[in-house]
Amino acid sequence: MTVPDDVETFAEAVGPQSDEVLREMDARAAETGFPTVGPAVGGWLQQLAGLVDARRVFEFGSGFGYSAYWFARGLPADGELVLTEVDADELDDAREYLARGDFGVTTRFELGDAIETVEEYRGPFDVVLIDNEKERYVEAFEAVRGKVSAGGVVVADNMTAGPFDFEEIYRLVVEDRGTRGGMAGGVADYLDHVRAADSFETTLLPLGEGLAVSRRVG
């Protein structure tokens, strides 16, 4: 399930406005079918960084830098943003887009497996975005949970749509029926895991393709 187009357009209209670089990135995504979070969710990510007074952000899976660009707009000049990506060309493109934004934040571009990369970093991180392989979402959360600051948040994309139908994830999570496996099973396992995680409180943001927002409360 995705939010109706008119609601998504309305959310975009009342949120932070895009700039020239973001419009170029949106056009690229539309032309190539590359799955970005889109401007409505992007504006919300920018707002979230400001709401938690974020100084450090870590991304599990960055593509060509779309969500990172929105995060950078919400960080202070002395902030730090870590992008991870397994595709070298996409990471190079992300570097170019972020440079054009000229935000002044310290931006690190890590080529390789995000779960291995996060082990090389010390916390705390104020915002973490999980958007890598859906079957590894739980693994990603466990790799970073101890590095999330008090009051910080872990955001996971594709909770209600994307590489599976909403009806499939609904059956697995709400009705608790069906065999778990694949991408939908990975997301269902993640939702069960974070809802039961000590010191984290999770809610769903039904915007874009669905975001689980888990705040560290202890």
Rank of each mutant, 00 (worst) to 15 (best):
V21Q: 09
A196D: 15
I169M: 04
L211S: 07
E135D: 14
Y69I: 03
G186Y: 07
P206M: 13
T2I: 10
L91M: 10
V217L: 02
L207P: 00
L211Y: 13
L75S: 11
L98H: 14
Q17N: 09
G65H: 02
V21N: 11
Y190S: 03
R180I: 10
A161I: 02
V3Q: 09
T107K: 01
Q47A: 13
P39Y: 08
V118E: 08
V213E: 09
A29N: 10
S149I: 04
T117G: 06
E59A: 01
V118I: 08
E96A: 14
E201C: 12
E80I: 02
R177V: 06
V154E: 13
Y121F: 15
F109D: 06
P39C: 07
G181M: 09
E59F: 02
E110Y: 01
V153I: 04
G65P: 00
R122P: 00
D198W: 08
F64W: 12
Y66N: 02
T203M: 13
G218N: 14
P206L: 12
L129A: 08
M1L: 13
G65A: 01
A212I: 03
S149Y: 06
P16N: 13
G65L: 00
G210C: 02
V187E: 13
G112E: 08
V86M: 15
V14W: 13
G38V: 04
A212M: 04
A77W: 01
E142I: 01
E59W: 02
E110D: 10
H193A: 11
G33T: 12
L204S: 07
P39H: 13
L75R: 02
S67C: 04
I130E: 05
D53E: 15
A68K: 03
Y97R: 10
G15T: 01
G33M: 12
W70P: 00
D6H: 12
L211V: 08
V52H: 09
E209I: 08
D93E: 15
R216I: 06
N158I: 04
R195G: 07
S149P: 00
M183E: 15
E8D: 15
V21W: 09
R73A: 11
E90T: 05
F64P: 00
R100N: 05
D198S: 14
Y170S: 09
P76N: 07
E175Y: 06
G178Y: 12
P163V: 10
A99K: 09
G43N: 11
G101A: 13
R180K: 13
E135I: 12
P163H: 12
H193M: 02
V128F: 09
A68G: 05
D89W: 03
F10I: 04
V57S: 10
T179L: 09
W44R: 07
F64G: 02
L51D: 10
T32C: 03
S67W: 06
V118Q: 02
D157H: 15
Y137H: 08
G50A: 07
L98A: 11
G33Y: 12
V217Q: 05
Y137K: 01
T202E: 03
T36N: 14
L207D: 11
T107E: 15
D6S: 11
S199P: 00
G208C: 01
A114W: 06
A161M: 05
A54I: 02
G43F: 08
A77L: 01
E142P: 00
V217I: 12
V153H: 04
D6W: 11
L75M: 05
D198N: 12
D89S: 10
V3I: 13
L129N: 12
E119R: 14
T202N: 00
M25V: 07
E85H: 06
G112Q: 06
E116K: 12
